[in-house]
Design a protein around this nucleic acid. Structure first.
Lengths: 125, 125
DNA sequence: TGGTTAATTAACCAATAAGTAAATTAATAT
DNA sequence: ATATTAATTTACTTATTGGTTAATTAACCA
């Protein structure tokens, strides 16, 4: 564990079991036993995957009696997403327009004014 | 190599050297020697990283005399991005508006009409 | 108390990953 | 032909990953 946070995040996402767990957790919290049901895999194996996810900050854990519910923590995904979005222009033809819209959205929220202008000056391809 | 494509993509992105190589290639094509300059690492090591990236479809390679230029191929990033975007609602407060905008954008492009309506009916949080 | 369920820990194994140094291939240049 | 430069291949080492089974901890239940 000397890797940077985004490396840890991508490494955690590189396993299909772990991604499936995250997808399940998007529906709501769940204890280990329940998470393990869809997989032909021992419970210790699931515990290990959960440790990887927890270490990556992608889940958090609490206690309820003998259960340890897992909860999705999507924050690291935001950074991963931001990294990938750098490259959107290389695949997305409508990148310019989306990019402009996001900038506009941001300035809208930052300044809370200029609600109905700007758009007319946007670049178009 | 029996993993699904998105696992291969995330695994390729989990290494900081490989991410740095992709960032360099976003500026334009480059041969192996040039790519290896910023790293304290032997050339065979770079060759290995390039193979991982090529195997993941994140770069392609050609030939020019004794050089093998590498070129960024961002397509797999689109799928990785799409996977992560599933979770945007868990971190992004303006998810609803962006989601609505993307839907609007899509229908705009599909139908090529209804250019200046819709926005007034969007959900707001 | 003892039994059951939930989950983790410990010890182990096989496969993969990330690096090295040395040898080899391929193209260019003299 | 030979030397140089670019890149890869080979063989090897070390650490990590993903899984196993068996034992242990922890909380609840009757």
């Amino acid at each position: 564990m000397s890797a940077d946070q985004i490396s840890v995040t991508f490494a955690a996402l590189a396993d299909p079991t772990r991604r499936a767990i995250l997808e399940r957790l998007a529906m709501g919290e769940a204890p280990v036993k329940e998470l393990s049901v869809p997989f032909e895999m021992s419970q210790p194996a699931i515990t290990k995957h959960l440790k990887v996810l927890e270490h990556a900050g992608l889940i958090s854990r609490s206690r309820e009696a003998q259960w340890r519910p897992c909860k999705l923590e999507a924050k690291p995904l935001q950074d991963a997403s931001a990294w990938i979005e750098q490259y959107r222009q290389f695949w997305d033809e409508s990148f310019d327009r989306l990019d402009d819209y996001l900038k506009e959205l941001q300035s809208e929220e930052a300044t809370s004014k200029e609600k109905k202008d700007g758009r007319s000056t946007r670049k178009r391809r």
